[in-house]
Simulated scan of single mutants.
Amino acid sequence: MTRSKRHSPAILPPVRTLPPSLTHQRIGLFGGSFNPPHSGHLHVAETALKRLRLDWIYWLPARGNPLKSKPAAFYERVHQVRELIGHNPQMFVSDFEHWANVRYTIDVLKQFTRHSPNAKFVWLMGADSLQNFHDWRAWEEIAQTIPICVVSRPEAGPRALRSPFARKYAGQRVRERQAARLPGLDAPAWVYLKAPYDRTSSTQLRRDAQKR
């Protein structure tokens, strides 16, 4: 099978797009461009999975990101995320943004929480994303919709913890040793998890690819 055929949306196996409507499970939602996905993304997901005691993580590749350059084809990135997470039974990739024709995180969250109102959702992000979280559409509404877990990333910690989000919601920050309480808390609530750094970045991977 050739690489181009392997990335064709027509032959990708079916993707689960939403959790069961009646679930009460603890679910992390991990959105991003994943352009390309890499070990740093997996590090964020695995850290949150363990420290928050999550049942599942839904990886949500974005159709596009207004704050970044145009990413690779959507289903190419879906396929790459699948390869990255391998056979981890607690993680899978959802093509929800493509299927539902939505683009912004707040719209994704509204549909997930409406579909599964009893699920204990948490939004996952690396500290590098928290630095410009205040530039996201309706960022305060996102913060007030579900709890947020931020995982440390190289050289991002100090700036992330001085970001408008961190300052505005300083009183709602959960202590790291109590991180497992975060799923199920009323938003706004957030935690910052320190973890050994993985210095891989999508930007550097793209630069390296261009040099080849």
Rank of each mutant, 00 (worst) to 15 (best):
N35Y: 06
L42Y: 06
V44R: 02
V44Q: 00
A45I: 07
A45T: 09
L49Y: 03
L49A: 11
K50I: 09
K50C: 15
K50L: 14
R51E: 15
L52K: 02
D55H: 08
D55N: 14
D55G: 09
D55I: 01
I57V: 13
Y58K: 01
W59L: 15
W59C: 11
P61R: 01
A62R: 02
R63M: 14
N65Q: 07
K70T: 15
E76Y: 09
R77D: 07
V78N: 05
Q80D: 14
V81Q: 07
R82L: 12
L84M: 11
G86E: 04
Q90M: 08
S94C: 09
S94T: 08
F96I: 08
F96D: 09
H98T: 05
T105Y: 07
I106C: 12
D107Q: 08
R114Y: 13
H115V: 11
P117T: 08
P117I: 09
N118F: 07
A119G: 11
A119K: 02
K120T: 02
F121D: 10
F121S: 04
W123D: 11
M125N: 02
M125R: 00
G126W: 05
D128I: 06
S129M: 11
N132K: 03
D135Q: 10
W136F: 06
R137N: 13
R137Y: 13
W139D: 08
W139S: 10
W139P: 11
E140N: 12
E140W: 03
I142G: 08
Q144G: 12
I146H: 04
P147T: 00
P147E: 09
I148M: 13
C149H: 02
